[in-house]
Nucleic acid binder design. Structure first.
Lengths: 333, 333
DNA sequence: TATATAAATGTAAACGTTTACAGAGGAAGA
DNA sequence: TCTTCCTCTGTAAACGTTTACATTTATATA
């Protein structure tokens, strides 16, 4: 592989000049520039961005840490991050934690060793120690799908409490009283925890006693949703509605209910969370809380770059989420 | 940030020794090793993998190029690649082409500048020039979801022709004659092209005349599937069954059919392709051709690493795909 | 104890850029 | 003509590792 030095020799200039035609062409005389570009062609020169990164201490690479790319919501925000980064000629290294905090820690470490310029993290545990370490060492990062609303760190998220509240209120207004919730494992997803809080608070505000037997916690998966829904339907005095902490759980719940011979939505109303694309294509269409995943990723990336570039102040951004009513919810029997 | 040199000074050894405790601890005396590790702690040493990459010309990074992470199939194989890579302490940089070949070319270039050790590509155009360039320059890469069956390049894929054939045969055996196909744009997806060939060949083998009006080509999306299905249903002498080139199209087609008031599967049988997770959770369950996406990613990565490590011979691997019959297909009316 | 061998460590160059600084040359102003 | 100021280019050090080779130290053998 040829280097800048080879090019320089062929063109009869110094390496500095070659570097300049690459990085700031306007500072070199047109004639010289021509010589250099021609020399590049003749020796089939390939730029070495790694060497540049080494020299400048800027890798032009960021790390993106998410629970799992399998979840369409995270896939969507990943696109947002990538699209924003690629515009700036920055690459993104992707890592899945599978909702395991140790994995998150080790990813952060590896990515920092790789000298990423910054990190975008959908954390599994906002009170974990890595975030503090990153803060202490003033390493640029921003939280995605964040539940933190203030403090010295950059974050973008939605109001999960409100989302949970809205979902529950919608069901209550349809006359439901036995409202179950299928949630993620709280220790693995703070978001789920906040949604549950919204659910609880809403019940309280409408004078419906909270029944802890109507909470099922499970892995974020279709099967998890299916099995949990079945459990809730087997309880004495079973639920007539469930609020699921995400759409995959909700889709699973639909399946579970049908496997028990129920008609949807007459026998069971279901609300999801996320508004993934497929939610509107399923029958009955899934009522859900929509959150702007792509935008979240894009905004997160923008925030990060601002932070990397001008040491901007950390800020938290709350995006709008909203209830989308489709056919999976109906009046209580 | 402290460097190996700082550590060396504190520990009273040379940088070579420090490097050795990092890379081959067993070659340094236990006592020295102790001194060094302690020195690392005291100055909070952080390893610089970028510098290493620069020195060794091995970035321990690979590039993964896919059409779009939005498609669950590609998300799944991305996981396969990542899981395999991370085991080897290798990171993966992800890039989406959005089915645009120029984007693919530019991604390859950028990633190579970043000195990735190899590439895994789900190409949009197997006859494009980049592949040949990569081959010429002996750059390690492997094709995923590949349609090439022989030649000097590494590739893993399934038999798309056979898949298309099986899907069609299934419909024919159910008595369908007016069988439409909703495919991707052939110039953007060779896979779709091969599936269509399988479809055509099968019709021929069963003496059903091929009607070019029953082919709809569209973007790979839910909306694309919906709109195309509607078009096919509005044809004179409309279809009683459609074979869709992927599950998203099929899910879209379901929606389209229902929007026209049809009952599924009685009025329209639908076959998809991919067997994405949601396919079995939808009502009616989607009959589809399953392909082992995770395995494909994993195998692709393994092949790549073998190639990087021991200059192994290129090889093509064909994985098994199979027809999964669910409820979305039934006898012709 | 002397020698041969093996194990542990050090020396210094190399990897391919960038960039602060210096220098050359030319134009413009006095 | 001399000075000043630009514009363009060159020089050389720096970035943080690795690694071939040389050297020292320890161990085994006679």
């Amino acid at each position: 592989m040829s280097t800048i030095l080879d090019v320089a020799k062929i063109a009869g200039v110094s390496t500095a000049t070659v570097s300049r035609v690459i990085n700031s062409p306007d500072t070199v005389r047109e004639e010289t520039r021509g010589k250099v570009t021609r020399a590049m062609k003749t020796c089939n020169y390939k730029y070495n961005a790694l060497a540049r990164g080494f020299a400048t201490k800027q890798s032009n690479t960021i790390g993106l840490i998410i629970p799992t790319i399998n979840n369409p919501v995270f896939a969507e925000s990943t696109r947002g991050v990538q699209d924003c980064a690629n515009q700036k000629k920055i690459q993104v290294i992707l890592g899945n934690t599978y909702y395991r905090y140790e994995q998150e820690e080790s990813l952060v470490e590896t990515l920092r060793e790789k000298q990423v310029d910054g990190l975008i993290i959908t954390t599994t545990n906002p009170r974990g120690s890595i975030l503090n370490i990153l803060l202490d060492e003033e390493f640029p990062f921003v939280l995605l799908y964040s539940t933190v609303k203030k403090g010295p760190l950059s974050a973008v998220g939605i109001d999960n409490f409100k989302g949970g509240y809205q979902a529950t209120e919608h069901l209550i207004k349809l006359g439901h009283v036995r409202i179950g919730m299928v949630a993620g494992i709280f220790s693995k997803s703070d978001r789920s925890f906040h949604r549950w809080h919204g659910y609880k608070q809403c019940l309280k505000n409408y004078d419906i006693p909270y029944d802890k037997n109507l909470l099922e916690q499970t892995e974020y998966s279709l099967t998890g949703g299916r099995d949990s829904a079945k459990k809730l339907l087997f309880r004495p005095n079973p639920v007539t509605a469930v609020f699921c902490s995400n759409d995959y759980l909700a889709l699973g719940a639909m399946k579970g209910a049908r496997e028990l011979g129920l008609n949807l939505p007459e026998d069971l109303s279901i609300v999801g969370f996320d508004d993934i694309q497929i939610a509107s294509y399923v029958i009955p269409g899934l009522t859900t809380i929509s959150q702007p995943a792509y935008k979240m990723g894009k905004l997160g990336a923008e925030l990060l770059f601002k932070r990397i570039e001008n040491q901007a102040k950390p800020e938290q951004r709350m995006l709008e989420s909203s209830l989308i009513v489709r056919e999976s919810t109906t009046r209580a029997p």
